[in-house]
Amino acid sequence: MKNRIIDTSLQLFEKHGFHGVSVNQIVQESGTSKGGFYHHFHSKDELLFVIHDYFISYVLNKAMEAISTSTHPTEKMQKMITSFVKVFDLYKPHISVFYQESGYLKPLYASAIKEKREKYKTLLFNLLEEGVAAGEFRPELDRTITGMSILGMVNWSYKWYKREGEKSIEEIAEIYVDLILHGLLTTEAKQDSRYARYFLNNKALT
């Protein structure tokens, strides 16, 4: 029931906007009841927060998993970028509503979302420093500008990505990995056989 309510509200919010949709409409369209709605959500505001929290929690958890299960910075970065890109397919409706309606989040909920976004950014920035210390990432690249460039480039995917497009989300993730690692890695790291599979020219040869 919870997922049905969320799926229905995503469709309604995208079409009519957050303030253009009532709890009664969500209940009616989802074929549930007000009791069922308030069993899962205290309010429509909490529902909007949950929609936002779903995909932000997913990408944050995947980033922490990549960092904790891998040894080398380049491998961690590849996994982190890949999971980041894939979220735009897994949670496309959630992200559309996020960018459309995030201004309506109550301060408490907005703060919780901001905290997770900042935590993700910190993980990325720390990984950039780790890569430089390990001799894998170019030390001359400014950490803040590099990190914000990666976030900005991947985040913009929500503007143009379409599931029915020419490239699958997996193929798009591989392109992002190739672009970012080519700019990020030192000459020596690019020649490391462990990372050859991350570059598209090597995939074309296999």
Rank of each mutant, 00 (worst) to 15 (best):
K106A: 05
F125R: 06
Y195F: 01
E46H: 13
E166L: 03
T122I: 11
G135Y: 00
H72A: 04
I150E: 02
F49D: 06
D89P: 09
E136W: 10
S102D: 07
I95N: 12
R143Q: 11
V132F: 00
P73T: 11
Q78D: 07
T32K: 06
L105Q: 14
K44R: 12
L151E: 11
A112Q: 14
L10Y: 05
L141Q: 04
E46F: 04
V21I: 01
L205I: 13
V97C: 11
Y120M: 07
I67R: 13
K162Q: 02
E188Q: 15
M64C: 14
L179K: 12
G147E: 10
F41K: 08
A63K: 00
S83W: 09
K34S: 13
D53E: 11
Y195M: 07
G20S: 06
L47K: 01
N126D: 13
P73C: 08
V27L: 02
K34F: 12
S157R: 05
T71N: 07
E46P: 10
Q28I: 13
M1Q: 15
Y38T: 13
F49K: 06
S22A: 06
H72R: 12
L90E: 05
V97L: 03
F55I: 03
H42I: 14
A189V: 06
L47A: 02
D192S: 00
H52F: 01
R4A: 11
R197I: 11
F41C: 09
M64E: 15
V87C: 00
Y120L: 14
Q25N: 03
P73Y: 04
N3L: 06
I95D: 11
M77P: 02
I26H: 10
S83G: 09
R163G: 12
T146M: 04
S168Q: 04
T122K: 15
E164T: 08
I56M: 06
K106N: 09
A189D: 05
E174V: 05
Y176N: 10
Y161P: 08
E75V: 15
E166S: 02
I5C: 05
N201E: 15
L60R: 01
H42E: 15
H39P: 06
I51R: 05
K79P: 12
Y38L: 11
S102P: 03
N201Y: 15
S96Q: 14
V97K: 10
Y104G: 09
H42D: 14
H72G: 00
A134I: 02
L124T: 14
W156P: 00
F37Q: 15
L123D: 14
E65H: 10
E46R: 09
T71R: 11
E164M: 07
V87A: 00
E75Q: 08
A196C: 07
F41S: 03
Q191W: 09
N126I: 08
D178F: 03
G36K: 01
R4N: 04
Y158F: 08
Y195N: 00
K86C: 10
K92S: 15
S83M: 07
K203I: 01
L47Q: 04
L123V: 12
Y198A: 10
G152Y: 06
P73I: 06
Y91P: 09
V85P: 01
R143D: 09
